[in-house]
Write a protein that binds this DNA or RNA. Sequence first.
DNA 1: AATGAATGAGCGTTCATTCAT
DNA 2: CATGAATGAACGCTCATTCAT
Lengths: 197, 197, 197, 197
Amino acid sequence: MKKSETRELIVKTATELFYRKGYNLTGINEIIAEAGIAKATLYSHFRSKEDLCIAYLEYKNEDLLNNIDTFCNEKLVGEDRLIAVLEFLIPFFESDGFNGCWCIRTVAEIPKENEKIRKTIQNQKKGFLAYLVTLVETNLPDLEPEEQVKLASQIYMLYEGAVSESHLHNSPWPIYESIDLLKTVLDKHKQTDLSTQ
Amino acid sequence: MKKSETRELIVKTATELFYRKGYNLTGINEIIAEAGIAKATLYSHFRSKEDLCIAYLEYKNEDLLNNIDTFCNEKLVGEDRLIAVLEFLIPFFESDGFNGCWCIRTVAEIPKENEKIRKTIQNQKKGFLAYLVTLVETNLPDLEPEEQVKLASQIYMLYEGAVSESHLHNSPWPIYESIDLLKTVLDKHKQTDLSTQ
Amino acid sequence: MKKSETRELIVKTATELFYRKGYNLTGINEIIAEAGIAKATLYSHFRSKEDLCIAYLEYKNEDLLNNIDTFCNEKLVGEDRLIAVLEFLIPFFESDGFNGCWCIRTVAEIPKENEKIRKTIQNQKKGFLAYLVTLVETNLPDLEPEEQVKLASQIYMLYEGAVSESHLHNSPWPIYESIDLLKTVLDKHKQTDLSTQ
Amino acid sequence: MKKSETRELIVKTATELFYRKGYNLTGINEIIAEAGIAKATLYSHFRSKEDLCIAYLEYKNEDLLNNIDTFCNEKLVGEDRLIAVLEFLIPFFESDGFNGCWCIRTVAEIPKENEKIRKTIQNQKKGFLAYLVTLVETNLPDLEPEEQVKLASQIYMLYEGAVSESHLHNSPWPIYESIDLLKTVLDKHKQTDLSTQ
DNA sequence: AATGAATGAGCGTTCATTCAT
DNA sequence: CATGAATGAACGCTCATTCAT
């Protein structure tokens, strides 16, 4: 087996376990047993459990961004594509193994002093925000730039709340409320737009 | 020392540590050392760390509801009192030791199978939702009942998102975005109200 | 079993193993197996293997100083009692389990940065030197004070060399050479003494 | 790179690390990283870490004997050349990276059962003794043969003690005491010599 | 002749919990 | 009612060594 293949096997195994059971409640022993490798093999690929955690976060993030983008591009353009960001959460919530947001959950598990993981997570969220800004710019080009940023931030907030709360309550209602809220906000923009014309 | 006093000392000590460091990263030894009691004393008051966790969650929740209620009652009635729920988060965020939402963080730390803690947390959130429904009913009495419930749910979503995200980003901007979003929603209700009159 | 008894059991067991096999080559598992206790029991008495090492060094040192003192007090006074310090090494070398000097051996095993253990060892040696100074003062009172210190230092050197080399060569000849050397030095002092009278 | 060159690179690297950090505290990984070679390359030159240890001991020993011989040959003949053996220790102690006697330190680290390394070390010390015997024979030819052997043994003892103790105390005073002791012994031989003439 | 990925055994340490006193 | 000594299981991690390429 190639080195990169082993590495990928480790990341995939760790990702499944970390996301399902949590970072602290998943032991290295469990990961290597599941992956069918020796402990030292894991440690030849990752210096520490912490490094493996970062690989897990990146793997999850990349996957998510791809899935969202694919999902949104199937939708009509304009407002609908923005709403699609939140609609994406419905199949996500219903999918096997949905367990909330790995960022929020991992932040909750690590000591406050762990800057490395904390920064990784913050950067992921900033990346997602940047993605949403671009999406707003593309689909609501007539909006003022600062309004575009504000709207993106608000979609971000609604997205995050919907993920956390649907997970906590084990129900999709928070997603629907977020969608509803977003529609209200978009309506307001439409009105403002009309009235200024 | 009376039995109830010892119990309260334990709960307070555990609460401070659990909230600051997280549930899994706080050891029993740390709690008894901080409280200055013997290990068996702790176990004579709580059957397990899990039971202590529930006491911690309840202690935190009671405290929060009192604080929110006190804060909101100082404000004018009507819409402003609803907005106050979110404005409450600003001093909360700025307070020493702010560390996000204990419910979200604890859910992230325990195994999915732990029904006891999970139910406790879900019930707390349902209690908070019920509080918000009452608040909407009191302050926007003209709204349709189902609209009142919906609005309360949305305030809940905005509240939760603001707590989580201000914690994650270590910045209050998510709180301000939530407030802004809520104002937009309330404006819409006002318009609808006017138009139907 | 009382706490102090368990502690003593641990120290005795660790001492036997550390001295026989060396510090690094003796695992915690071996110590607890030999002592018949649980791992956590050991760690409730000693914070780390390093702390146990220091207890080992102190246990050995105390034992040694007692044995030397007892041995020397059985001898005639004067020069003979000084020579007795080195003669003590003959039964020591022949005793079961003789394995050289724990100080020298432990210094060889720990990283240079380990100040805690290093200081402990240096202090033990300084204590032994102080003991020898007193012994010289008592038994050769007519000698100049600075000559007394010098002689004590030289006895110290001969003692240390004899221990190390008898261990390395697995033979007592270095002890006999040290004794011979000491006698030469004492003879010289006698001559000087006579000629100045 | 030629095979012999690679081998020498390995030995030099291992020597530096073993002597500085100790045998057990130096890992194979550290050696190959420092030498810039692959793990299997090391194992193609040395069957085991133990074999590499022996190469290290031999490398150190050869170097030492050369240095001592060079140092002593620069001195006047007679007693002064014998004293020079101990005076050699002053620049040795002051040199960068002085870390005591590798033989004593390595003996302290290996299991008693390891005959291979043990014998190597004992033979080195016997070789050094033989060198000293020759030195005494050459520089004090009038002494009785058995007295020559005895004197060589005593110089050996003083040498060894001075190395160990200057290392342990991190101070050169043991070297000076050894030199002083040796001078006393040599004085005595001179007197004996004179009185028998 | 040289590589580097993989290994099994072991390391020192910490955990929540129990029980005799 | 409160104690503190003791526990078994699990933790994250490192070691010298091997083998297919």
